[in-house]
Design a protein around this nucleic acid. Structure first.
Lengths: 199, 199
DNA sequence: GCACTAACTGAGTGCTCAGTCAGGATGGTA
DNA sequence: TACCATCCTGACTGAGCACTCAGTTAGTGC
């Protein structure tokens, strides 16, 4: 591993765990057995390093979801949606650092002043919401999902529900795994084509 | 207004807008036309000031929701839920700073080390989720809401949906007002007693 | 007028940190 | 061997910061 990528990885984890301001360049240099100057040689400034981290996070997320979408052959759009929710929660456990970083205010703060950061965040956001949206669109084609549902907007609501659970875990306020059956049931209730029934 | 409350208010807005680390005590002193020392005379440390701000935010939120609950005489639990969602979105626009502060990582960061902060956050969280939970419980009593719904857990999911919208606005990624009809419809679909129908 | 206290002041302190820079090491090429 | 580019080093710098403290002011009771 080159020193550049070592710094990038260390920064990803440190920024996710402690935040941008709370992680010093001195600290990153020590963590990676590198001189302070090396950080600036490769990335120019702390802000640029953060942008590189965000770019890295985006690639990781896009890669993970791309791999998932290609491996799945779901029976229906509705099944695809349920699998997407499951995969989202799985990924949030598998790659905690990616989600921790996105759940911090740092990136959104920077995005207010930095156009590149904003664009990066929007790409990530579209990728995350897009997974649910794709399932809903497919479901409307195969008839498993109600035609009255607006895919993009419903995807946004589902994303909020699922990502909200992950966020509560990150804040150590709640454990999302517990809610897994409820959230699947909720998604079905929100979008599945209704059959005749009363309760 | 005493200098103490002037500092408290300035801090609430500054911490919400820029974050804890990004707001210096020097800055707060200048904003409120007060000497640096005065901040420390009243609050002892920046961390204590932040805790006072959080306590203030909690009182404001609890007061707002208490006033709302007392003024409402909804026809059913389902109607109450819809009003709660509307009020949440309304409050999030009316008192932007309260929600901005809660959507920052600062408080959750501090909560990891500070028990008082953690307790404060949990109270706020319970207050916010509680509003939806109360509506669901009432709805199960009057029959407007399905008995199969677990009030607390469903309240959590609805909270995530609604608060997620507010959060997207705070990140300037989306405008929540647009989604208002969808989110009401979604809530009804999630919890309302089902009638015979097919689509 | 005096004593006591609470509120307030602001210059000063010591520390942390992002970023710099002059120079060293390494390896490829003429 | 000489030259050059790339990678890397770490002591240094200047700015910003939280916090301190000796001292001032204003109010209150005697």
């Amino acid at each position: 591993m080159t020193k550049r990528t070592a710094i990038l990885h260390a920064a990803t984890h440190a920024f996710a765990a402690k935040g941008l301001r709370e992680t010093s360049t001195t600290e990153l240099a020590t963590m990676t057995d590198v001189a302070e100057g090396t950080v600036f040689y490769h990335f120019g400034s702390k802000e640029n390093l953060f942008l590189a981290v965000l770019d890295h996070v985006r690639h990781e997320l896009e890669g993970a979801f791309k791999g998932y979408l290609e491996s799945q052959r779901p029976a229906s759009g509705l099944a695809m949606l349920e699998e997407a929710v499951a995969f989202y929660l799985h990924l949030a456990e598998d790659r905690v650092e990616l989600f921790l970083l996105l759940h911090r205010s740092d990136a959104y703060e920077l995005a207010r002043a930095n156009e590149q950061c904003r664009a990066e965040l929007e790409k990530i956001f579209n990728c995350l919401v897009g997974v649910f949206e794709a399932a809903l669109t497919k479901g409307q084609e195969d008839g498993s999902i109600r035609p009255s549902v607006a895919p993009r907007r419903m995807a946004l609501l589902i994303f909020n529900m699922v990502d909200g659970l992950v966020r509560l875990r990150d804040c150590a306020l709640y454990e999302p795994g517990v809610m897994f059956p409820e959230i699947l049931e909720a998604c079905r209730g929100l979008v599945a084509r209704r059959t005749n029934r009363t309760e």
